[in-house]
Structure formats: structure tokens, C-alpha cells
Design a protein around this nucleic acid. Structure first.
Lengths: 221, 221
DNA sequence: GTCTATAATAAGATAGAC
DNA sequence: GTCTATCTTATTATAGAC
């Protein structure tokens, strides 16, 4: 049987060889990994699926990150780095104590609401007993600022008689984080069970106000 | 080649055939599955590992539950069934409004604290977008009572002027659940990052009091 | 640094005897 | 109803060319 292909192939390269750009490739992989891990969990995530989300190949993932687990750790550090960096730039010391608390609560609420990937990966990491985050001194050191900031606001508020004395800053951080986090992390079961939509704007605005109110009432003198 | 086996085997049965006890076998598998799914997640859990936790075999798991996913759904229904049943038996209507709220918060705190498996499986289910719980009308119907109970307490409290009017019962349930759940679900990352032990008795007692206080201050007139 | 192809292994599910 | 052994497929990880 004769070869039916045309004698001269056109000069079009059927596969575009990737331009060498290590840093961009690394970032590509990292962003794709965030979404895959956030969606599927650590064991559920497929390295093949991450590769498909990028413009590069599976081989490159192992080349840059070594293993699926190391890639997951890089994802953790990226997500925690992002929230702590924005948090540190809030300049809460410029506001009066009650306004500062309100702003912090609103920021936490909005950030968690807008960063579902962070919430999901944090949940996943807890399922794994936090064993990966424990190996990251980076994340630990990034997280000191938020507690220090709360402590300063509480001290100022107590000084002017606006807040009660003796509130533990880390406890307050726990109270604020709980609500802002849970509302996103447990959205599916809560919505399904109670037949409501936690994502709708009215509910969101109501809950944002509720946690502000609850926190302020809790610390008020 | 002659058969080298001894002519008469001893009457000792080398393997004890399991006594037929369908209901016990089913419960065995279910309890083992709770622990495995709670520890490893849905994709992380291994059917082999579940079989090893029981006194039965992998074959039986498929025999009784059909598939890994159906077994997981049975686990969900068991865990939600347990909490809702105890919750419904609290008799909060016998207490004055503020005492009733306090008792409900303390119950929720204690139950979540003592049922880590429930917390973990609920987290896992949210990672999976609540797609399995959505297929369980049983869980939905079980969960109506808690909101009804809160609504009744809030109404009584508003009537006697102890509570503000206009508090949404489901929102309050969300506020209470958030704190009690998060404290357990995110224990690992929170403890690691902030270098504290959320499991220690003093922290636990302090947090139990904090959420009671916060809720009561929030609804108080 | 990037690619395709494949090795090695793990895990869900089932067959078939008793 | 229960058992052991196995089939089949999917997945992590790597080899080796360019």
C-alpha cells in the first residue's frame, strides 16, 4: 500500500517545545498543585492531574519538587505565606481599639471567604495531623505577628477602659478564626443538612456582622 | 511422585471458621470503618486496612456494604445519627432560657471534644463537597430538632426580656458549632503554628467558658 | 530542562471453594 | 456467610532520548 502522506511536511512544529523558563514553570506547577490538592486532598490528588493543569509535564513536577509530598509542602507554605503577609500589613495600631478589632475581624472574614483553597488545604493538613506543617519553621515564624497585634489592641483597649482585662490574645484569635473558617470549611455539610445557602450575599453580610458583634460584646468592659 | 502427606491429618482445624453472626459482623466492620476513614480520609482509607481492623475479611466488606463508598456513607449516617440522638434528649425546655443556652453550648463543646472521629469525618465530607451526605435524607431529617430547640429557647428568652429579639436560631447554631468544631478539627495546625496544646485540661476549661460567655453576651438584651 | 514511554507497586473489586 | 487467592486497573516514580 502506497504512503498517502504528502511528500513535503509543512514547517509547522506539531508540538511547541516549551521555552526554558524555570521560575515560571515552577510557579505554574505550584498554582496547579494548589487547586488540585485543595480539590482532591493529599491522597486524592493525582500527579497526572496536576500535570494536566499546567502547560508542562509530569516529569517536570518530579524534577522541581522531588515528590508529591514535597510539592504539597510547598503548597502549604505558599498559602500560609499569603495570608500572614496581608495580615501583617493591616496597620491596626492606627485605629482606636474597638475599630481595630472590627477591622481585624472583617479582614479575617473576608480573607477566608475569598480564599477557599487556603481553607481546604488547612482542613486537609489537619486530617493529616499537621505532620507536614510541623516540618516548616517558615510557617511558624510567619504566624507570630497576628497574636502580637491582637495583644497590643487588647492592651490599649484595657488601658482606656473600653475592654475587659485578662482576655488572652490567642484565645481571641481562636474565637475569630473559628467562625470565619468553619463557615467556609463546613459550608457543604451545613448547607445540605439545614437547607440553607451559606454563600448567598445576605447570609454572608449577616454573618460578617454577627461575628464582629459577638467578638466586641465578648471583650467589652 | 508419591504423595508425601501423612495419611491421617490431625483433627485440629488450623483456622477457626467464624461463627455466623451477621449483625455483629456488620457492626464490627462499621466501627472499624469509622476509625479508618476518620484517620485516613476517603481516598486515603484502605479497604484492606479496614479488614485488618476487624476479625473478618475484606470479602465480607463487599458482601455487606457493596463498595467502599457505600461503606463510607454508612459511616456518615452512624456518626450523625449518634450526635443528633443525644442532642434531642437534652430536655432544654425544662431550664430557664439562659441556663438552657449554657447547657446546649456545654453539651456541644463536650460532645465535639469527645468525638474526634465525628469531627474528622465531617471535615472529610466537606472536602468532598458534601456529595455523599446530600444522598442521605436520613441525616437531614435527624437535624431539624436542634434548630427547633434553639428557636424555642430564644423565643422564651425574648419573651421574658432576657434576650434580644431578632436572633436567628440557625445563625446561633452556626456560631456555637463553629467554635466547638474548629477547636477540635484544626487542633493540629493551630497547636503547631502557635506552639500551644489545645488538648490540655486548662485550655479546654478556659475555652469551654469562653464560648458560653461569648454566646450569652451576644444574645443578652 | 523538557519530552515520551514504562517500570514497579498498590489497591479496589471479584472468583470460587466450603 | 465466610475464606483465600487473584484479576484488573490506576498511580507514583523513573529511565533515557534530545
Amino acid at each position: 500500500m502506497p504512503d498517502t502522506k504528502p511528500v513535503a511536511e509543512p514547517a509547522v512544529r506539531p508540538r511547541q517545545p516549551r521555552k526554558n523558563n524555570p521560575e515560571k514553570t515552577r510557579q505554574d506547577i505550584l498554582l496547579a498543585a494548589i487547586h488540585e490538592f485543595a480539590e482532591q486532598g493529599l491522597s486524592g490528588a493525582r500527579v497526572d492531574a496536576i500535570a494536566e493543569r499546567t502547560s508542562t509535564s509530569k516529569r517536570m513536577i518530579y524534577y522541581y519538587f522531588g515528590s508529591k509530598e514535597q510539592l504539597y509542602l510547598a503548597v502549604l507554605e505558599k498559602l500560609y505565606g499569603d495570608i500572614r503577609t496581608t495580615e501583617a500589613a493591616l496597620r491596626l495600631d492606627e485605629l482606636d481599639p474597638q475599630a481595630a478589632i472590627r477591622r481585624l475581624v472583617e479582614f479575617t472574614f473576608d480573607h477566608h471567604d475569598a480564599n477557599v483553597d487556603f481553607i481546604r488545604v488547612a482542613s486537609i493538613e489537619n486530617i493529616h495531623h499537621g505532620e507536614h506543617i510541623a516540618r516548616s519553621p517558615l510557617i511558624r515564624s510567619l504566624s507570630k505577628s497576628i497574636v502580637t497585634q491582637i495583644a497590643a489592641i487588647l492592651a490599649r483597649g484595657a488601658d482606656v477602659g473600653a475592654f475587659r482585662a485578662g482576655i488572652d490574645p490567642l484565645d481571641l484569635h481562636l474565637l475569630i478564626s473559628s467562625f470565619c473558617f468553619f463557615r467556609v470549611s463546613n459550608r457543604y455539610t451545613f448547607s445540605t443538612i439545614h437547607q440553607v445557602d451559606l454563600g448567598e450575599p445576605q447570609a454572608k453580610a449577616r454573618h460578617r456582622e454577627m461575628i464582629c458583634e459577638a467578638v466586641i460584646r465578648y471583650i467589652r468592659a
